[in-house]
Amino acid sequence: MKKTAMLIGLAAVLGFSSNAQAIDWNWKGDIRYRYQSQLKADQDDVDDHSKDRHRIRVRFGVSPWINEELSAGLQLSSGGTDPVSRNETLGDNFAADGIVLNQAYIDYHPMFLDGDVNFILGKREAKSTLTVIDDLVWDGDVTLEGITVQYGKDAKGKEKSGLCAIAGYYLVDEANWDGEYKGTSPYLLAAQLSYKGTVSDLGYQVGASYYNYVNLGHADDKSAYYDAYSEEMDYDIVELFGNVSGKVSSLPWKLYGQFAQNFADTDEHTYLDDDASTAYLVGLKLGKAKKPGQMEASVEYFNLGASSVNPYLTDSDRGDLTAQEVVGGDEKWLTNVEGFKVGAKYQLIQNMQLGMTYFNTGYADAPEGTDSDWRGHMLQADAVVKF
């Protein structure tokens, strides 16, 4: 009895209470091992024609439900400072790999608004912050930084049925410094409206987004962004998106699509091209690999004009096959690309999934002096464990 009283007293001194004990911590993580083989040239006389890599991605975090009005999130991950990749490539003489802060946010959902509105402060993954159908605008690893107001999403970032409205203010970079600040810091304004519902046996979701990048020419270190952020570039993007889903017999299916156009002024920003300002993606998914023994397959076609979306934040896998390899361009220019992606997943056992993805890509508009028929090929084989 004395030992119990002493432990209770010690807990009180250290600041623990029954309230703290009641927090639902919600620990979550995943580990992915990937073998990636990338064809660098479609030429029979090239000896070293493939770039093969073994890579890992690790994410581990907690999203505590503190009380009915307050939750938060913290996640650590592998990878460096690249905003579109949390992969760590193996093969550095067994050196230790780094861990970075991937997410850190506060979510306040006041009860005077019935808990239906989330005020989010900090750094959170794009797909939980915004309504994201696929990776035309946002790579799956992007974590936005700033302030978000959500209506129609739960605290875990999942859309509820009905109306969803989101507004956000996100910091892109600090203002350029050369003895004094040169202009206002670059930032992104985002707004979305979408609706999720059902008709008969079909589920559907439709929506629109507006992304306005402001003051990109004031970025502190333009060289880090390969001229994607400069006085000559701007992104004033309208996105339309949607999906429809159902079942054929017991087989789930989903048809989805995105369309985006950059309406920035090409007269004012000379790196932009009106004829290359649109991007679109359409895809079909069959099955759902959720329980052991289940499979799913998907196919999608994409086409991204060079001036359509932010080339530093769209999906990194498909763009890596073109400009970087053919004309020696900057590897972060992930637009001016078209092609298709085919994937399959198999739920091997509970919490473990195997997957295979194939990319076939080319130029949306081949630069002068390059082969317009050139195609890039990449194969990814994944083993993923979630816990």
Rank of each mutant, 00 (worst) to 15 (best):
D114W: 04
S77M: 08
L281S: 05
L284H: 15
Y229I: 05
Q261L: 09
L70C: 02
F259S: 03
K160T: 12
S17F: 07
M295G: 14
K51T: 05
D371E: 02
D82A: 11
V244M: 13
G287Y: 07
K123I: 04
K40S: 12
R318Y: 05
T270Y: 13
G9W: 12
I66W: 04
V58E: 02
E368P: 07
A11P: 04
Y312A: 14
S71K: 02
V206L: 14
E232F: 03
W177Q: 05
N87C: 08
D274V: 12
V100R: 15
Y211L: 15
A165V: 14
P64I: 11
E239Q: 12
G257C: 10
L74I: 15
K285P: 09
R59P: 02
V238E: 02
W333Q: 13
F387H: 02
K182S: 05
Y187K: 10
N336K: 02
P83D: 07
V309K: 06
D141L: 00
L10N: 11
P83I: 12
D365W: 04
D234L: 05
N310S: 13
G115R: 13
Q36V: 14
G61W: 03
S307K: 14
L272A: 00
D371A: 02
A228T: 14
K291W: 03
K247S: 15
N176Y: 08
H49T: 13
K290Y: 08
Q36D: 14
W177C: 05
N87E: 15
P186H: 13
Y301T: 06
P311L: 12
L113S: 13
G61K: 00
D139M: 10
I237R: 15
A306G: 14
L136K: 03
L321E: 00
G122Q: 01
L251Q: 06
K182F: 01
S194W: 01
A41N: 08
